[in-house]
């Protein structure tokens, strides 16, 4: 039973990490006031570009860097549309989703369905990994997981304890007041959108460089949408995003296990569990029957146009 639980927990961590990069990136982007609905497509581009590089060069570090570069470029394009041209963020996100899923399939055509020679393998951390239960859950993972252990505290610290994080929070609430103070609102938004896209491509790379060593069209299978949902669910706080991701991952893994432990229920109903749980959790955490100041960045999805000031 213990091994069962540890194994579910370890698996939930792996699952959570693969969506957390995108979700935390999107938290930054939305805190800056820009919503990106195209996460799924951008993840695919990340998965494809990373795999493509590793397939041709067998250099994992290079693949990781290429993935980030692709994310930055996509972010630049998205920021140009939404920040400079002030295009509607919802449509832009959908357009990116469609465009990127097409482009990833198109560019990745030559390497579809073939395995690469190398992938990121789990690295047990000496000492820590031999702690019973905890070691197995937390310290026999791969580099993406360990990196996430750093990303979580750093992102929380950045948002709540630094000057730049303070400006980020203000940016999503009231860009005009920052603009008045002489801060380049547009440059900040460009920066955060690009950062978010780079994080999203890393999420994609998790799937093609660590989960498997393989690329196939549409292989992210809806993870981008889950990451997107996680953002509002987390009330724009990375700490809650972590909880949400673990909850979603845990429940979906548990769902498959339930087929073994509680047979007789059609398996599709177990498949529905994580989605239903998300709705319930969303209602509990954000429902307005809890008298609280709304956490949603006030300027989210609002075009910022100096001339409207």
């Amino acid at each position: 039973m213990i091994s069962f639980i540890t194994s579910i927990c370890a698996a939930a961590i792996v699952y959570a990490v693969s969506i957390l990069y995108a979700a935390i990136g999107e938290i930054f982007s939305q805190r800056a006031g820009i919503m990106n609905l195209g996460i799924e497509g951008i993840m695919l581009m990340g998965a494809m570009s990373g795999f493509m590089t590793v397939y041709h060069t067998e250099n994992l570090l290079l693949a990781f860097l290429v993935t980030i570069l692709v994310g930055l470029l996509l972010g630049l394009a998205f920021a140009f549309l939404t920040v400079t041209l002030q295009a509607d963020q919802t449509v832009c996100g959908m357009a990116f989703l469609i465009f990127c899923s097409g482009l990833s399939g198109f560019l990745g055509k030559s390497v579809t369905g073939i395995a690469s020679a190398v992938k990121f393998e789990p690295i047990p951390i000496p000492g820590l990994s031999s702690i019973p239960v905890i070691g197995e859950i937390f310290f026999q993972q791969d580099i993406f997981v360990y990196l996430m252990y750093l990303v979580i505290p750093l992102s929380i610290f950045y948002i709540y304890k630094t000057k730049a994080g303070l400006m980020l929070r203000a940016l999503g609430e009231n860009p005009a007041s920052l603009d008045q103070a002489g801060i380049n609102v547009f440059a900040m938004r460009y920066g955060y959108v690009m950062f978010a896209c780079a994080m999203t491509t890393i999420s994609g790379a998790c799937i093609s460089l660590s989960y498997t060593n393989f690329w196939n069209e549409g292989m992210t299978g809806g993870k981008g949408w889950i990451a997107f949902s996680l953002v509002a669910f987390s009330r724009w706080n990375p700490a809650y995003a972590v909880l949400g991701a673990l909850l979603f991952g845990g429940i979906s893994i548990l769902g498959i296990n339930m087929q073994v432990y509680l047979p007789g229920v059609p398996s599709q109903f177990y498949g529905m569990l994580p989605y239903a749980a998300t709705v319930v959790a969303l209602v509990i955490t954000t429902g307005s029957f809890r008298k609280k100041h709304s956490e949603e960045p006030a300027a989210l999805c609002q075009k910022y146009d100096r001339e409207d000031r």
């Binding site: 303070l166 929070r169 203000a170 609430e173 005009a176 007041s177 008045q180 103070a181 100041h293 006030a298």
Partner: peptide, 20 residues
């Protein structure tokens, strides 16, 4: 030009050009 969700100190930090 204050940000309602932030504290007074945070609002003041925000207006400072030079702070750590």
């Amino acid at each position: 030009a204050l940000i309602p969700t932030l504290t007074v100190a945070e609002n003041i930090f925000l207006s400072l050009d030079h702070c750590s």
